[in-house]
Amino acid sequence: MTDHFIQDKTTKVTVNLEGAEQKMDFNDLKSGGFIKQRQKDLFTVRLRCPGGRLSTEKLIEISKIAHKYSKKGVVHFSFRQSLEILYVDYKEFNAIVAELEKIGQKVASCGPRVRVPTACGGCEYNPNGLTDTQKMAEMVDKTFFGTPTPHKFKTSFSGCPIDCARTKEMDLGFQGVVDPKWEEEACTGCTICAEACKEGAIESDPDTGKPIFDPLKCIWCGDCIRACPTEAWRPKRYGHIVRIGGKHGRHPMEAVEVCSFLPDEKVADAIRLTIEWYNANGRRGERIGNTLKRVGLDNYLKFMEPVFQNNQAVKA
C-alpha cells in the first residue's frame, strides 16, 4: 500500500481529457478512497466494508463492477478488510461510483479522518466470540465514518482475548471480555475448568477438586465458562477492554489499556468523547498515541471519566 493519496494532488490535476470534455467531482477524491497507482491515470478504488463483511448478493454485484472497470481484472483485499478494485482509470470515477451507489456500496476513505472499522467474526458465529463485533463495527461505521481528526483514526473490534483484530495496534481498539462467576452448589469438583484455563488462573483444590481462582492471572476469555459441564461457571458481565494510542507503520506503538469492562451501550460515547479530546488536543498530522505522550494520559483519562468511570483499574 502506498501513501500517495490523490487528495494531495487533486488541485494539480487538470481536467484535460482526450476527446469530449468531462466533469470530475473532485470532492469524491478528497473524501478519499481513490489511491494513486504507479501506472499513469490508474487508481485503486477502495470500498467501504466495515468488519470485512459483505452479503454474497452484494459481492456478486461488486464483482461485475470490478470486472467492468478494472483494466487488469483484479481486486485486492486491503489490510483493513475492505475490497479494493485495482487499475481503475480516473476518467471513469464518476461512472464507477454511480454504479457502486446503485447497489448500496460506498467508497472508503483515506487521510485524516475516522476510518472504516475492522472486526473479527465475533459472537454471532465464532465459538470464542464474547461480543458482537460485527454489529459494533457497523454502528461505528454508520456513526463516525469520515469524521475529521488530526491524523488517521483507526478502530477495531476483537471478540475475545486472542485479539485477531489487533486492538493493541489501533488508535482506539475494543476487545471482548467476560467476567466469570462461580457458584459452589453447581460445582462437582471435576477439575475441567482448571485444565481448560490456559492462563493458570484456576487451580483445583487437591481435596475437593473445586476451583481456586486468581483474578490477577485471568484475561477474561471465558474458557472456564465454556468448558464447565455443570454451568457452575457462568458469565457475570460482558464488556470491552478499551485500548488507545496504538499504531503500526514505520514506528509502531502499543496501545495502552484504559478501561476494563466497557459495556456495549457505552462504546459510541467512548468513541465520540475520544474524538472530541483528540480534535481538541492533537496537532495536525499527529496520531493520538503521540498526542497522549505529549499531553499526558491523565489528561485524557480525566476527560473520559464520564464514560469510563466505574470500569476498573487502568493499566497504563
Binding site: E195, A196, R226, P229
Partner: peptide
C-alpha cells in the same frame, strides 16, 4: 489431559450434549 480436555468438553456442550460425569 492438556489440549484434548481443554477443547473436547467445550465442543460437546456446543453440540448440545450433556456432560453428566467427569473423573480424573
Amino acid at each position: 489431559s492438556g489440549e484434548p480436555i481443554q477443547n473436547v468438553p467445550k465442543s460437546i456442550k456446543e453440540e448440545g450434549h450433556r456432560i453428566v460425569e467427569v473423573k480424573k
